[in-house]
Design a binder for these strands. Sequence first.
DNA 1: GATGAATGAGAATTCATTCAT
DNA 2: TATGAATGAATTCTCATTCAT
Lengths: 195, 195, 195, 195
Amino acid sequence: MNKDRPKYRQIIEGAIEVIAENGFHASQVSKIAKKANVADGTIYLYFKNKEDILISVFKDKMGYFVDETMNAIKEKESASDKLAMFIYMHYKLLSASPHLAIVTQLELRQSKPKLRHEINSVLKAYLDIIDLIVKQGIEEQDFRADINPKLVRQMIFGTIDESVTTWVMKSQRYSLIDQADDIHQLLVNGLFNNK
Amino acid sequence: MNKDRPKYRQIIEGAIEVIAENGFHASQVSKIAKKANVADGTIYLYFKNKEDILISVFKDKMGYFVDETMNAIKEKESASDKLAMFIYMHYKLLSASPHLAIVTQLELRQSKPKLRHEINSVLKAYLDIIDLIVKQGIEEQDFRADINPKLVRQMIFGTIDESVTTWVMKSQRYSLIDQADDIHQLLVNGLFNNK
Amino acid sequence: MNKDRPKYRQIIEGAIEVIAENGFHASQVSKIAKKANVADGTIYLYFKNKEDILISVFKDKMGYFVDETMNAIKEKESASDKLAMFIYMHYKLLSASPHLAIVTQLELRQSKPKLRHEINSVLKAYLDIIDLIVKQGIEEQDFRADINPKLVRQMIFGTIDESVTTWVMKSQRYSLIDQADDIHQLLVNGLFNNK
Amino acid sequence: MNKDRPKYRQIIEGAIEVIAENGFHASQVSKIAKKANVADGTIYLYFKNKEDILISVFKDKMGYFVDETMNAIKEKESASDKLAMFIYMHYKLLSASPHLAIVTQLELRQSKPKLRHEINSVLKAYLDIIDLIVKQGIEEQDFRADINPKLVRQMIFGTIDESVTTWVMKSQRYSLIDQADDIHQLLVNGLFNNK
DNA sequence: GATGAATGAGAATTCATTCAT
DNA sequence: TATGAATGAATTCTCATTCAT
C-alpha cells in the first residue's frame, strides 16, 4: 500500500519495460515480477490485480507529467507561449522514456470499459491544463472566442496525440521535439497561407 | 471466399454489432456466429481467424468510406472546400452507424503489433485522401508551404479522430455533424483571433 | 447436456474412480479428463464446474439407488421386512462399488455450504424411502407411535451410515452384507435383552 | 509450546469462531490470527500448520468432553442410565457451544486421509466410553449379548451423531437436549411396539 | 459448403508458510 | 517470543480453432 516502498517503484518501472516490450496482454504477471526482482505474490501486496498495475503506471507517470508541465508553463506569460511550452514538454517527457511512450500511445488504448474509464479519469487532470491555457487565451483575446473551447481542446490534444502515435509507430526514429514549433505554428495560425 | 455470398455479409454485420456491444475480446467467435445465424465452423470458411474478422470489418467499411468520400469531394473545387467536405463525410458516415463508430474508435485500437500493422495499412488509403487535399492546397497556395505536409495530415486526422472518440465516449449524445463547420474553421484559421 | 452421450458416462465413471483414489480436492480436472479419455475442455461441455461433477456423480448414483431400493422393498409386506430389505440393499449396492462407497462416505461430506445443500437435496429422495417405511410401520402398529418419526429416521440412517463409514475406514476388509441382519435386529428390538 | 499460555488459548478460541463462520477452507490463517489478536507468524509458534489448528481444536475440546462425560456417568449405576447420561451430556455440551458444534459436525468431516486419521484417533477416547457402557450392559445382562458390540457402538454413535448433524443443518433452531430421552428410548427398546 | 462437438494450450491469483528483524 | 512482509507453488476454466460427418 505504501507507495514509497522500494518494491512499489521496482514493480512500476519493471512493468513499464515489460509492457512496452511485450504489450499488456502478453505481459504475464510473472514476467513483470521477474523484471522487478520480486516474487509473483508480492505484486498483489501492492496492486489489486493486473489491470491495476497498468492504471497505477499511468497515474504515477501522469502525476509527474502534470507537475512538470504546470511548472514549465508557469514561467510563460501568454496563452500561446504556454501552449508552445505544453507541446514541448509533452514531446520532451515522452522522448525521454521510449518505453513509457509505447505504453501511453498503444497499450493504454484499452477497449475494456472499466479500464478505459479509469484511464480517462487519470487523463482528466492533464487535459485540464489545456483547458486552462485555452481559457486564458480567450479571455486575453488572443484566441478566438467564436468556437466551443471543448473543440479547441480536442484539436490541440488530438493533434499532439496523433503526432506522438505516428512517431511511436515509426519506431521513434526521428526527433519529436524538433516538431514542436511547427505543430504550435499550425495550431495557432491554421492551415491557411497568410503571405 | 466469395465476398458477395450472403453468409459473408451476415458475419460482417453480425460482428460489428457483437463487437460494438461487447468489445472485441469479449466477442467470442461463437457469439458472432450465433448473431450471424451460421455455425461456428462456418466463420472459418470466410475468415482466417478471429482477428481477420476485425480487419475484414474495417477493410469492408473503409473501402466504402473511401469511395463515398472521394465521390463527395470530387464535386468541390478548392482544397479548403474539399477538407470541409471530408470532415462532413467522416462525421456523417460514422453518425449513421453508431455500432461501427464504437468499433473504429475503441475496438480497433488494438495493441497487438501484427493487428495494428494491418489496421494501419487499411487506414492508409483513407489518409491518402487527406494528403491529396493538403497537396492541392499547397500547390494552389491556399495552404502554407512552410510546414511538413505530414504534420498537417497529423493535425487534421488527429483532430477529427479525437473529436469522434470524445463523441463516442460521451455515448454519442450530441450531433457530431453540427461540429463539422467549427472544426473546419479551427483547422484552416487556427486558434488565433484575427479581428 | 445430453446425459446419455457416451462421454457423459465416461466422465462420471472416471470421476468416481479418480476421486475415490485421490480425494476430491486432489482430483484435478485434468486427471479426471485423462481417466475418462476426453480432453479437459470436454468436461465443461457436460458439467458447469468441478463441483458439478461431484454432485452429478451423486445424483446419478442416488437415482439408481432409489430405483433399485424401491423395487426391492415393493415385494416385502411388513414395515420390518421392508426395513430389513432397505438395509440389505444399501449394503449390497455400496459393496458392489468400493470406489463409490469411498466417495459417498468421505468425499461427499463437504463443508462448503452450497455444495452441502445440493448434496442434501439429492439425498432427500433416499431418506424419503425410510420415512415411508416408518410411516407404514406406525400405521400398522408394528412400530411405536410415541416417538417423533424424524428421530426414528435419524436413528435408522445414522446407524446404517456410521456402519458403512466404519467399513470404509477399515478399508472394506470385511463383509458389510453379513451385518445386515444384526443391524436390523438392533434397530427393531433395541439394546435391551429380552430373554 | 506451553499450552496454557494465553496466546495458545486465544488462537484455539479464535479458530473455532472463524472456522464455524467461514468453514475450514475459507478460514485463512491470517483471518484466524486477526481474530485471535496475534500476528500470522505467531500461529506457527504454537501450531505445526493449518491442519494442526483444526486437530488441536478437536483434541482440546474432546479432552474436555471426555472428562465431563466420564464424571457424569460415574454417578449412574446401570448401563442404561449411563447411556442416557452419555446422550444427555453429548447434547448438552454441543448445545452450549454452537460454533463448536458446527466445527465437529461439518468442518471436521475432512476427506484428506492424514487429517481424517488423526481426527479418528482423537475420537477414539470418546468412543471408548460407549464401548465401556456397552460392555457393562452385556456383562450385567441388561444388553443383548447376541450381537457384535462394535455394531452396537456404531448404532449408538451413528444415531447420536446424525441427530446432532440434523440439528446443526437446521440451524440449531430447536432444543437438542429435549430429544435425549426419546433417543435413549429408541436405542434401548428399538422400533417395535411393545404394548 | 455447412455443421458443431471436441480439443487443449495458457495465465491470474490465493494463501500457507518462512525468516529477518 | 513476536512480528508481518515476502514468497512461489499450484490449478480451474475459457474459447479460438479443427475436422469428421
